[in-house]
């Protein structure tokens, strides 16, 4: 692999880790995802087209790797779904005691968004990519990106409002 590409990938690691953290909800799981992503990227570097954005390409690999893992997990954990749901609600009840919008609560909120919204919110709001770039990474029409993004952003706003309202006397 070309040294420049190696350098560029190394420099991308913090951002990739952040994105993976957002997708998986934990830094450990996120790092597993980043590791799998980098291994794939290194092995398949020939499929990256020089002149196109390396970061977009790696975000795309990360997201696809995550989706694959998610599907595999879902098949295995299908019968546990009700249990998972109950767990989440209970955690919410406990969290309601805390001040609204702690960072942990925000991460929790992102973790409960449908994956199709979570990836978009992370890429736009956290990674700061343009809608057009996100549409390319996710292979979606730009209109789908904007509508899913709107749903997630309004939900986040309502979540913050509720928290603020809940804090009152």
């Amino acid at each position: 692999m070309d040294d420049n590409i190696r350098r560029e990938m190394l420099a991308l690691l913090p951002r990739l880790r952040r994105f993976a953290y957002g997708l998986t909800g934990s830094t450990d799981e996120g790092d597993d995802l980043v590791q799998a992503t980098c291994e794939r990227a290194i092995r398949h570097i020939d499929t990256w087209q020089p002149g196109t954005r390396l970061d977009s390409w790696m975000y795309r690999i990360a997201r696809n790797t995550y989706l694959n893992a998610l599907r595999a997990k879902r098949v295995r954990a299908d019968h546990l779904q009700n249990v998972d749901h109950g767990e989440l609600t209970r955690v919410d009840g406990a969290r309601a005691m805390e001040a609204h919008l702690t960072f942990a609560a925000v991460r929790d909120f992102i973790g409960r968004l449908p994956e199709e919204q979570r990836s978009i919110v992370m890429l736009v709001c956290v990674e700061g990519l343009a809608y057009r770039e996100v549409a390319e990474i996710l292979d979606l029409p730009i209109g789908t990106v904007t509508s899913r993004l709107a749903r997630a952003r309004i939900a986040l706003k309502d979540f913050a409002d509720d928290g603020a309202a809940g804090e009152g006397p």
């Binding site: 913090p14 951002r15 880790r17 952040r18 993976a20 953290y21 957002g22 830094t27 996120g30 919008l101 960072f103 942990a104 925000v106 991460r107 992102i110 919110v121 992370m122 709001c125 956290v126 952003r153 986040l156 706003k157 913050a160």
Partner: peptide, 14 residues
């Protein structure tokens, strides 16, 4: 504010 909070919430890897 939502975007800023999101960035801050996931900033640890940075």
């Amino acid at each position: 504010a939502g975007s800023s909070v999101l960035r801050a919430a996931f900033n640890e890897p940075m």
